[in-house]
Nucleic acid binder design. Sequence first.
DNA 1: CTGTTTATCGTCAGGCAGACGACTATGATC
DNA 2: GATCATAGTCGTCTGCCTGACGATAAACAG
Lengths: 250, 250
Amino acid sequence: MPYDPSAYPPFAVTVDLVVLTVRRHALCALVVRRGESPYEGRWALPGGFVQPKEGLAAAAARELEEETGLRVHESAGQSGGVHLEQLATYGDPDRDPRMRVVSVAHLVLAPDLPAPVSGGDAQTVRWAPVESLLSLEQEESREAADPALAFDHHRILADGVERARSKIEYSALATAFCPPEFTVGELRRVYEAVWGVALDPRNFHRKVTGTPGFLVPTGGTTTRQGGRPAQLFRAGGATLLNPPMLRPEV
Amino acid sequence: MPYDPSAYPPFAVTVDLVVLTVRRHALCALVVRRGESPYEGRWALPGGFVQPKEGLAAAAARELEEETGLRVHESAGQSGGVHLEQLATYGDPDRDPRMRVVSVAHLVLAPDLPAPVSGGDAQTVRWAPVESLLSLEQEESREAADPALAFDHHRILADGVERARSKIEYSALATAFCPPEFTVGELRRVYEAVWGVALDPRNFHRKVTGTPGFLVPTGGTTTRQGGRPAQLFRAGGATLLNPPMLRPEV
DNA sequence: CTGTTTATCGTCAGGCAGACGACTATGATC
DNA sequence: GATCATAGTCGTCTGCCTGACGATAAACAG
């Protein structure tokens, strides 16, 4: 099977981004409003073409910075540092009606941003709760009050959310949703938002403070959540939690 | 950013396969000898171009059947059924010296085949223990007695093996390495081969027979492993093991 | 018949998670 | 300033699961 550079089928390769954060106790994803056909006016995941001499992760990082101003830290997993990883690749022959597009989806976990989204037009880029994005799509046949996501982005988002949900079980990645310094309660609210469940504050506290390398106390305290002052922590060096955090049944 | 079908960069999209099985108590991968430049004469993972109107999983299944005669069962996870899943996508700009190739790697778990490999030339397709494939590559600078894998296939294989090792922890996928009917001991040898550790037969037996939906007794027994007759099982409907099998530390 | 091999059942101790009580230290409200 | 609401932190207890390992069972090889 010799290569003939003009004989291989014409493919376009793109990256799509599932950018997740936790805002107001809800897991939110970054979506952009499409300004062109197809799916004009619909919400879609941010993304774009991979450049000829650009790696896949580099393309994802570039698109992320173009859309949000977020910069990926090299050593992912740091608290306050944005985490980026490859999610999966979607290449159904007719996922884009215009041409054959293979999209390498990436997952980004970011802390809540004070400014909504810098670098993008506020009218066309926004955070949307994943719950509404995913549930709306389920009943796509309803009147198009809030249209569903474009292309196969519903599936990509669902896969990304599922990846995030399972990954915070056995890794320290939940700290990627937190500011550089955070309390145990704030970290617990991240788990609660991502999993959509309530956790026992006492057992959670015992678990995370008892896992070596997960949290490092900074010595400071804060009362920004109200109530008794809480210790501040940074993410420790551990990336894998063993034994894992257990997601409650059902 | 309007689409211009002639303006996007020229990409080729391929699928590569990490096909794993357990033979003679060792985890083995399918490799083919390259007959052309670059890396002529080297071993490489099987793979090929995605066709214009073909999905990624379909391309992987087609390549698998072309190289091995194996056919993927639709409902993966059945014992005796071949399991196929997407692994990851590799697209470094210079991973192939000839052109820009983005490869969507897939992971295949198959039971040990009585016939070596049907459908392929026995001289150019073979099972190789992953231990030797991976360790050889580590010392690539040694004399080229047995050259390393072509392209970035060492990394792809390593990722696939790591995926398989972690996935049998929390899923019932180990049965994909087994024939349609198998004993607890045979299943244990699968775990031991994939993880490269020895497991306690008594605790393993308690664990797998006590996990609902993992194993279904067929009523038959066999002595093909020698010793006392062992019950035969089929894979149950469960796909996720909760709690998971624990891989011994270190 | 005896030793070897593999399968299977049981026992026991330690670790960890879920349920939940108790106490502490803030700010808010009266 | 007393009281209340809110959040954080420490402990206790119980049940489940795992790792270590003893014991028995059923085949085959000599």
